[in-house]
Amino acid sequence: MSAILKINGTKKTFDEGLPPTLSELLNNLEIDAAMVVAEIDGEIIERKSFAQTELKEGMAIELIRFVGGG
């Protein structure tokens, strides 16, 4: 069963169903959790809560990281 998340403003379809948690989504996307901060539907998710954060169809997820800047 396919499911959709909106990640960083773009819809992404998961043909095999949603990853159950935010941690598993990051694994799935091959993103190192240590370098990102997340926001789901406008709420900041602390890194320590990634593994407990369950994902649901249609959630808007922002994955953000530090880059060089002045």
């Binding site: 960083n8 992404k12 996307l29 994955l63 880059v67």
Partner: peptide, 8 residues
């Protein structure tokens, strides 16, 4: 440093 979206 600045914050930007991860490129997924």
């Amino acid at each position: 440093v600045a914050l930007r979206r991860v490129d997924i």
